[in-house]
Write a protein that binds this DNA or RNA. Structure first.
Lengths: 132, 132
DNA sequence: TTCTAGTTTATAACGATTCTAAAAAAGTGT
DNA sequence: ACACTTTTTTAGAATCGTTATAAACTAGAA
């Protein structure tokens, strides 16, 4: 299994559940956006196998901490995650409540002209809200 | 009262509670960020007067719909609002969990080079995460 | 004053997320 | 393979922000 190493290297035991979640998250052509609920359903369908919700939460947070997932800053009752962990931005379609990737190359360079004492910039994320 | 007109003009009845919330939100030198809970506490302290939580929620949402408040897109267990409704951006201090305004003039012009069919851009918001 | 629609209220309901404590599995050494 | 320790999984309970409910109240109009 190709994920065993990956997990071990980041100090996570390669358990059956984590490996299965890796499959669902990373064995795809394209990256995608999801909520915990989306993911739990996907697991059930795709693997015909239920993983406890608590485990899904734990795993997603563990993966996020290790940098294998990113949280998408957006106001919703549910938290959105992204399997695309490269620096990039998002459109948010307000009507359909859908997220669409917006690559950094598709946004001109962003200059932050204000500094905050004792702090450094960790990330710059753009959210473009769309309407009809 | 200066807010009676404002509320009437937007089709909201100028009730005692709404006027009081207006005072707390808009009778300030500077704009500020808040959660519903922050606001409820501020009302209790500042006006020595309790307004039902449900009313605070209703009012904040009504004001947001009318454009007197803005939601700030950020991942937190609570929803953040801003009394600064001009186009602007935010720093988010990850450690202190604090928001800081970042004016559009302090960010170079942002060019969105990707278009989504049948949709137009409603807003462009930048979130700059800060670490030590 | 009376009527009606809009508003407030306390409380219940809801739903996403986190906590808990026990069972299971993984890793380590023998 | 076995015993032992630590991590992980699990179901269910608990938490907490937010929304719904239904009754009491209020603003505005006739």
């Amino acid at each position: 299994m190709k994920y065993i190493e990956k997990l071990r290297n980041s100090g996570l035991r390669p358990t059956k559940q984590r490996l299965q979640i890796c499959e669902v998250l990373f064995d795809t052509e394209k990256t995608f956006h999801f909520t915990i609920n989306d993911l739990a359903n996907k697991i059930k369908k795709q693997l015909n196998n239920k993983i406890s919700l608590a485990t899904v939460y734990n795993t997603v947070h563990a993966f996020e901490k290790k940098g294998y997932l990113k949280q998408i800053p957006i106001n919703s009752n549910q938290t959105y995650f992204d399997t695309n962990v490269s620096d990039h931005h998002h459109f948010y379609d307000l009507k359909d409540e859908k997220l669409i990737d917006l690559e950094t190359s598709e946004v001109g360079p962003i200059k932050i002209l204000k500094q905050i004492d004792g702090k450094k910039i960790k990330s710059v994320e753009v959210l473009v809200k769309l309407e009809d």
